[in-house]
Nucleic acid binder design. Sequence first.
DNA 1: ACCTGAACACCGTTCAAGT
DNA 2: ACCTGAACACCGTTCAAGT
Lengths: 238, 238
Amino acid sequence: MQTKQGNAADATGITGTTAAAIAADTAPRRPGRPSRPALTEEAIAKEALAIIDELGWAACTMKLLASRLGVRSPSLYHHIDGQHSLIDLVRILVVREFHDPAIVDMPWEDAFRTFGIGYYRAFARHPNTIQVLSTTPVRDGLTLEMYETFLRSMVDHGWDPSKAFEAMLGLEHLALGFAYEWNAEDLMLDPAYIANHGAPLLAEVTKERTDQAASAETTFMALLGRHIDMYRNNFDSP
Amino acid sequence: MQTKQGNAADATGITGTTAAAIAADTAPRRPGRPSRPALTEEAIAKEALAIIDELGWAACTMKLLASRLGVRSPSLYHHIDGQHSLIDLVRILVVREFHDPAIVDMPWEDAFRTFGIGYYRAFARHPNTIQVLSTTPVRDGLTLEMYETFLRSMVDHGWDPSKAFEAMLGLEHLALGFAYEWNAEDLMLDPAYIANHGAPLLAEVTKERTDQAASAETTFMALLGRHIDMYRNNFDSP
DNA sequence: ACCTGAACACCGTTCAAGT
DNA sequence: ACCTGAACACCGTTCAAGT
């Protein structure tokens, strides 16, 4: 089953099942324009997200990405505008997973909760995207639309736009922080390292946290609920 | 004033005033062990943080770092364990700026506020460190001590350790998110891009935000205060 | 239009040579 | 011990050549 082209993917221990991965297992491609294009922007973006999910963003090199798609790295430049454009494409894929225009019709408490949970869950599924996506300026229409939808949901139900924006950023940072903290491969606070480093309380609370990964969403939702209560209480007396 | 060694730093437009930068302006160094070491771990870390603050973490290459210190990049490996160890060293410098053991003697509300403000301010001064520091596991004693101090401050005043940890992570994510959002060179939500992209509410609330950078701390502190109220209200009825 | 191999500048890191 | 220049593997990107 091993081919010359599959070496980079094989080196990572990945045995893909996608069409792209299968393509990488076919015979080496010859130079010249193929009868049908081997790539699309969408396919490149999806494969990039898959690599980032599996191996982290740093592992998503043009070489590995191309290899997984059954082509050589220069081919990618015919479809995407260099590696930095992958950021926008990946963001669109993640935002698509939770963006829901229907929240504008809900009472703001429900909209806030639905938005927060969806946001959290999407990034909890793709924790390796957070480092880059949370620190790169937004440059796509879908993400703007997603933010606009949230603001509209709040403002149409009596919120001040600035307050809604402030609450949105707070919610976003909370969701991203928790999604990363509990779902990233490497825990920020590693119990193995903390043990015997003179921080007994920290050691105690992080001890069983590996098993608590499943309850991360519960923890986030508890905080989310408290936030909604907080905003409801301050609704008329800011 | 220009020398051969100064080219990398000069190319960035930086005219340093530190001892290190002055060293870079001296005559080229000859091979062989110098009479007195040209570098220390501390000096390397400080110069790295300066570069990161000015040009971003990606710009902090071994070559530029060495150039600014008046040596060649391989010399750095005699003092630090490769580039990844810079992360730990930079984290220590930032944490040092706000870590305050005295908070254990305060009422928990004061400790919470002091810790939160200090944490926010330190990272607001170094927003370019956030992307890397917030997503790299902690591997230094000072940072563990800083976390332990916060937990001790809460637990000694009646908090449940797990609840204190949860609150600590929430506060941390909020502080980091706001510190980045309002202080990073590139705004996540760039008013210039958002204008005329079909997101009127978002355009409205981000319009004047460049000028509001000064009020970022006020906004964060308002949210911090609401958080403290939230926790106080839930203190006996969780 | 779209893929390839060759080439280029850049990066982190290693290492023998020199003091 | 500690600095240097040379060398190595790797990366993103460009481009002429080929279909």
